[in-house]
Amino acid sequence: MTDDPGRALIRTKSTSDRRRQIWRAASVVIALVAGVLLGTARSYSHGQDIRNRSIDLSALVQGAGKRVVTAQSRAAGLQQDIDALAGSDLSPQVAKARQEADALSAAAGLTAVRGPALRVSLSDAQRDSDGNYPAGVNPDDLVVHQQDVQSVVNAMWAGGAEAMMIMDQRVVTTSAVRCIGNTLLLQGRTYSPPFVITAIGDPNRMSRSLDAEPGVALFQTYVQHYQLGFEIDPVKDVTLPAYAGLIRLTAAHQEKK
């Protein structure tokens, strides 16, 4: 049986109409998407050309660091207000909880610590009079890296450190050593080398632990070949300040061995 020519013509027109409708709808969608993209680009660029726009990560980090310092100062003031209000008219339950928290303050790094210490300083290789590193050397071999600082920190903890400070900040359980290039990022603040780690404890024991740490031994090979800085100095008496930042860790427990 053959199809009726009239029906075939109707089907052809119907198919053609559907295709035209689909293309119209697709054109509208494409135009809308293009408009959104152009609007977003203009909003981001503030009307300026963004093709050659670059992001200065160092400036972003420094700006964020300044905001962190401001926020920490404000938080410290608010904490003082809270402590002053909480010091009066405490219920027995609250008073007991505060006593238990105060007993843990030293272990958490929330109190100042004083005693003999070991101080370690790590610095980049020296530049020449023109501010350049030696020619033909990989620049990565001439700077202190995150793993170098972390190796020193781990070795001093392993050597019985009771309290530790990196630069001017007290190290606590939630502290994390991060490096962006040759810039140290610690608890929202940035530092340039030399990086100084001070730990209270037995200086001789911590010094032996540094000698036994593979990461420290590897760093010392770069010290010998490329003149990076590495100094270890015992300190008879030093006071490490209490940690004054926010405590984000809410719970922890020690597993029984």
Rank of each mutant, 00 (worst) to 15 (best):
M165H: 06
Q254R: 14
I22D: 10
R119P: 03
A125H: 06
G215S: 06
L186Y: 01
V235E: 06
L38R: 10
S207Y: 02
Q227T: 12
T190S: 14
P134N: 06
R24C: 05
V69G: 00
R20Y: 11
D140K: 13
Y191D: 03
R19L: 15
F219D: 02
Q169H: 07
L218R: 15
R42K: 13
L210S: 04
D168M: 04
N52T: 13
Q254T: 15
A84D: 13
L186H: 01
Q21C: 10
R248A: 07
I50Q: 10
L9F: 08
A244S: 12
R24G: 10
A106E: 07
A64Y: 09
K13M: 14
H225R: 14
I200F: 02
R98W: 06
D49L: 04
L90R: 13
V152D: 05
L184Q: 06
P234A: 05
A101Y: 09
V143P: 02
I10M: 13
S192R: 12
M167G: 05
V94Q: 09
A8Y: 03
S54F: 08
Y191H: 11
H253G: 11
A75N: 12
M165Y: 02
T239D: 02
Q62N: 09
G63M: 07
L110E: 06
D202Y: 01
E162M: 13
W157E: 06
G245Q: 09
P139R: 04
D83F: 10
G115R: 01
V143F: 03
P139T: 03
A75M: 13
A76T: 14
V68E: 04
F195A: 00
G115F: 02
T183K: 08
L85H: 11
S14K: 10
L118Y: 05
A217W: 06
P134E: 02
I166K: 10
A251G: 06
L228E: 01
P116M: 04
Q72C: 12
S54W: 08
N204D: 08
V149K: 00
Q146P: 01
T15G: 04
S121H: 02
E255R: 14
R18P: 00
Q224C: 01
G215K: 03
G159M: 03
D141S: 11
P214H: 05
H225K: 15
V94G: 00
T111C: 02
Y191C: 08
V28M: 12
Q227F: 10
S121D: 03
D4A: 09
D233E: 14
R74N: 14
D83E: 15
G63H: 07
D140S: 10
R208W: 05
L38D: 01
A97G: 01
M156K: 08
M1W: 11
D202R: 04
T174C: 00
K13E: 14
S207V: 00
P5E: 07
D233M: 12
V61M: 08
L210Y: 02
